[in-house]
Design a protein around this nucleic acid. Sequence first.
DNA 1: CGACCATTTGATATGGATCAAGCGATGTGG
DNA 2: CCACATCGCTTGATCCATATCAAATGGTCG
Lengths: 229, 229
Amino acid sequence: MANKTQTTAHATQPPVDNGNCDLPRNTLSLFGTDSHMGATIYFDQNSEIYGENEPADYVYKVLSGTVRTYKVLNDGRRQVGAFYLPGDVFGLEIGDEHTFSAEAITDSSILVVKRSAVIAQAARDNGVARELWAATARELRRTQDHLLLLIKNAQERVAAFLLEMADRSQAGGAIELPMSRQDIADYLGLTIETVSRTLTHFETAAAIELPRSRRIVLRNRSVLNKLNA
Amino acid sequence: MANKTQTTAHATQPPVDNGNCDLPRNTLSLFGTDSHMGATIYFDQNSEIYGENEPADYVYKVLSGTVRTYKVLNDGRRQVGAFYLPGDVFGLEIGDEHTFSAEAITDSSILVVKRSAVIAQAARDNGVARELWAATARELRRTQDHLLLLIKNAQERVAAFLLEMADRSQAGGAIELPMSRQDIADYLGLTIETVSRTLTHFETAAAIELPRSRRIVLRNRSVLNKLNA
DNA sequence: CGACCATTTGATATGGATCAAGCGATGTGG
DNA sequence: CCACATCGCTTGATCCATATCAAATGGTCG
């Protein structure tokens, strides 16, 4: 794990409240009920979980909070690779180093498991091996979808983002966004201004409501779906 | 395999000449020396190897020729997912269906192996299981790199493409492109006009030479590398 | 209350798309 | 063997979506 991490993370006891951490998606049985393999670590908002090019010695699962992975290009621009919500696994690499950095977007509790332990388990149990493969394949699928997003126009990208978040946080209609406009912009390959304008446009078109900047109510999904098609 | 494929492909004897098919990259031992597991099939230029959403019953390895995978969006635009050169494995999915379509860019000979055979082998031999995982992880890495390309400007995208092709075809300085400008444009998320203009610009800047439209000589890599950083 | 930061809104600039025409290689039929 | 059609590529002119630059607004915390 990153050096920087140690300075900001609080390695304390497992959380009392980790309510919505049993989503079916992106879960490894390795992280299942018998979690004696890993430790729960708390990360403060904006603290680094690991950095690009650091050794990938651990695999992570979000118990609560939200995580972003990202890469900073030579010209200083940042590309967010993914957002990880409770239940999601991230940081699983086959190479020895992380290809993206990871940070907690909000205060987060993260289950951390030694990668070597996971791989050793996979060597013994080919069900585990298959799950490891499946998790990587899911990540591949997600990345392909993300790639397809980046060739669309601004409205289509933002609509897709809203629908994705609504779906993943399964909060029927209303989304509480943990991430900033900058995070969204860097995920969608747009500027914050364009994201903001597009949201305003959707609000004007009565497709969404924006009671607060981080709270979005989907009013007319078919409008968004049409853009998403 | 696709129905359409049967009409265009020639299932004939293995090729006499499959010179450069033993690249270290993206190879599965499953496709190694004892290839009794698979059959070699010939595909004519522009013939379909498989279609999006078709059952992913086979895994493929390019012996000679070049393959493109792609997806057509609802608005008719096409995104090329990848180009596969001799030695490359493609079509490996964890779901039951292909997420992209695949076509031969030039007349190609392709080694085809039943997916179920590969998976059965993986269940017995965890070295094979690990390779299966590694192949998917490599594909993930490639897709991540491709995604990062799409947020760059036109010059950077074209430079990256040229360097990638030069590297992969290891033809020291001169590249013989098997794909059209349209293929390149659809891979890079640009139009053919922009690709063409950018190449002309690189030629004017003495970074490349264009003796023929499909032949590109890299004259000054550092210029291209600077853009690629 | 006032400072600060995130977000929105406004005005302008620009890179690449679009529309349109020209060019060069390849192949075909007279 | 040469006109001519065709196709892939290049070049030119213009337009437009989104970036950029700049300022206003609003929510949060001391």
